[in-house]
Design a protein around this nucleic acid. Structure first.
Length: 268
DNA sequence: ATGGCCGCGTCCCGCGGA
């Protein structure tokens, strides 16, 4: 029974970030990858370069902002959903879902919501509510499922270097945190926190104020496992070395490993 | 209280990000 590695990575511009992305893929060789903030239209997605690196891809781009993708090493994600249900007026590319290597993968880029209060924060909460509604079906699907992505929520004060200067930020608001808790209460496991209860496990360090150099980070990229997948969780971590590269994203790839399906014993 | 640092788009400043 071999382990599978699944990662989520907000790359903050896939065109500018392609060298970093390829370097990370080559070194870590994740089997499944969720990408956010492509910041590129569909036609500019580097499908050929990724195929050359050994990855099949599914993507939902958008001009300038947002954009999500799912990659499969030596495979091709089978799309099950593009965009969250519940609001036909929503044109932002923030959710993509596919079956990959035996797991149903929901790749999400939850709205930032700043400044709050305001229409952007309202959009964040409404989007979160739609995610919660859809997530219930995934959690109870009876098959292994994961929700992975940039949730733009700092779940607790233990998930940030110092909450004081962020207290008014949309990422720390009680409304945002209550929804994250509500989502987990459906039965999802916060895999990084579960395996690392006493470490910060930061996934994001903003470009300002030498936050990376000071390790002043936030934990906002999450990998949630439903009851079918959670028992198979083996390990979890953050590829911090990527954040230290030149020309890198302000997020670091965040990952889990879990046992793959046992190969049935040969009966021939 | 503000801005700081980035990527992107339209063009060298504004917006969004978190």
């Amino acid at each position: 029974m071999s382990a599978l590695k699944l990662a989520t990575y907000n790359i903050n511009g896939i065109r500018t970030r392609l060298p970093v992305l390829l370097q990370w893929l080559a070194r870590e060789q994740p089997d499944i990858v969720c990408l956010q903030e492509l910041k590129a239209v569909d036609a500019d997605f580097p499908v050929a370069e990724l195929r050359k690196a050994g990855y099949g891809a599914l993507w939902h781009g958008q001009r300038s902002w947002n954009g999500v993708a799912i990659l499969a090493r030596d495979g091709m994600p089978l799309e099950s959903r593009r965009g969250l249900p519940g609001d036909p007026e929503d044109t932002q590319s923030r959710y993509l879902e596919a079956a990959v290597h035996g797991v149903l993968v929901g790749c999400l880029y939850l709205p930032n919501g700043n400044p709050q209060p305001g229409p952007k924060f309202d959009y964040k909460l409404a989007w979160f509510d739609r995610l919660i509604a859809h997530a219930a079906t995934l959690c109870n699907a009876g098959i292994p499922a994961v929700l992975a992505g940039d949730f733009n929520v700092v779940p607790t004060d233990a998930d940030i270097y110092n909450p004081k200067s962020w207290r008014k930020d949309a990422l720390l608001q009680p409304e945002s945190r209550a929804r994250y808790t509500k989502l987990l209460s459906q039965g999802w496991l916060d895999s990084l926190r579960h395996l690392h209860p006493d470490e910060p496990m930061f996934t994001f360090w903003d470009y300002f104020r030498q936050h990376w150099q000071r390790d002043a980070g936030l934990r906002i990229d999450h990998l949630l496992l439903n009851p079918e997948l959670a028992p198979r969780l083996q390990s979890a971590g953050v590829d911090r070395w990527v954040r230290g590269l030149e020309g890198t994203s302000d997020h670091a790839p965040t990952w889990i490993t879990f046992t793959g399906y046992a190969v049935p014993a040969g009966d021939d």
